[in-house]
Computed example of a mutant assay.
Amino acid sequence: MKIARLTRTLIASIGFALLTQPLVAHAEVKIGVSDWPGWVAWYVAEQKGYFKKHGADVKLVWFANYTDSISALSAGQVDGNSQTWSDTMAPLAKGIPLKTILVNDNSAGNDALMVGPKIKSFKDLKGKKIALEEYSISHFLLTMALNRNGMTLKDVKVINLSAGDAAAAFMAGRVDAAVVWNPWVNTIQTSGKGKPLFTSKDVPGLVPDLLVVQEKSLKAKRKDFVGMVRAWYDVEAFLRSNPDEAAKIMSKVVGLDAKSYKVFLPGTQFFDQKANLQAFGPASDKTSLMGVAPTIAKFLLDNKLMEGKVDFAKGLDASLVKEVAGVK
């Protein structure tokens, strides 16, 4: 069976490349973090003192390899991890007791189907070569984009390349389109060689980035996790009011300059309290976690990235978000 890897490998080659193993220090709550803006933003909480402010004893554990962080959570080596809803489903299907307690963000333009000037609409893509990283978020986004426009993957020729190589192939004219994430979306656009035909902004809710925790850790250290939720809302407010300082903090974590890192922020919809309450809402809201779950699960099952069924509700715990908001 292929391991589910609807993953974030964002700029891993240039961000903390020397850290091949996570450095874990003894702490009350250990939280895995890897290279995605909605997760790197936890370092704002650390540096601005928001964890301490809300009584959360937290140690952020950096993983240079995102998939290692998923494995670490499933094995109980960390108390919680920063991971996608899609990457949480395979462990849940195996019966691993995990709970999603917070939505950090949705990709809202950071992932995109980039096309050249000759491609005016989806019908122009029929039979064309599209480069992307198979089974990644890019593969998922292309599937959704084609489905929404009356097409399927059978209508195009998928070329399996890493995100960086896909962007290079597109800019060199070796493929007709590429599905990539930032910084390559921005690189292609600023080069004048391509523009987005479809982005993650067109599928609200389908690319949620989360804080997922071990059920046993949640029971034992609930106070710390409630404090983390409160700290996150401070982070979200800080990102809006002080974007330059936030970019400076976050860019240092991944080894970029602040100006380069700011490219990622507009394409990331950071979730505040109101957005979190909605995200944990009923399945009738098609942008909620329950609402998007069947679509994500279908993609995983169709591509043999997951075995078995998932009890979506069992993998969610809205009680912390509700406690902080003072609602039942």
Rank of each mutant, 00 (worst) to 15 (best):
P183Q: 02
T190G: 03
N106R: 00
N182P: 07
A177F: 13
T152R: 03
H139D: 15
P266D: 08
M228I: 14
F299H: 13
S200D: 13
E236Y: 07
V254S: 02
P37C: 04
G308L: 15
T67C: 02
E28L: 02
A178W: 14
L206S: 09
Y43V: 08
Y261H: 05
F170K: 10
A167D: 01
K216R: 13
P91M: 04
G150T: 05
D244V: 15
K193S: 00
D272A: 15
K274W: 03
Q77F: 10
I159E: 15
K304T: 08
G205T: 09
V226G: 03
I70Y: 11
S138E: 11
V115G: 12
G80T: 13
L23C: 06
Y261N: 01
A108K: 08
A112N: 10
M151V: 03
T295N: 08
G38T: 15
Y135M: 02
V78W: 08
I296Q: 08
A90H: 02
M306T: 01
M228C: 06
K248S: 15
E323T: 13
K128E: 11
R240A: 06
S138V: 02
K30E: 03
T84A: 11
Q273I: 10
K221M: 06
T268F: 10
S162L: 07
A4H: 05
D111S: 07
S319T: 14
K126L: 12
D311C: 15
V180F: 07
E28H: 13
L102H: 11
Y261C: 12
F312N: 03
W181P: 00
G227W: 06
M89P: 14
D155A: 15
G173F: 04
L289K: 03
L300P: 13
N276H: 15
H139M: 01
D224M: 04
T9I: 11
V24L: 10
I159H: 05
A145Y: 00
K53H: 04
E307S: 08
V310K: 04
I296G: 01
S13A: 06
P91T: 04
F264G: 02
K195T: 12
A178I: 05
D285V: 03
H139E: 02
A25K: 12
A246H: 07
A247G: 12
E323A: 11
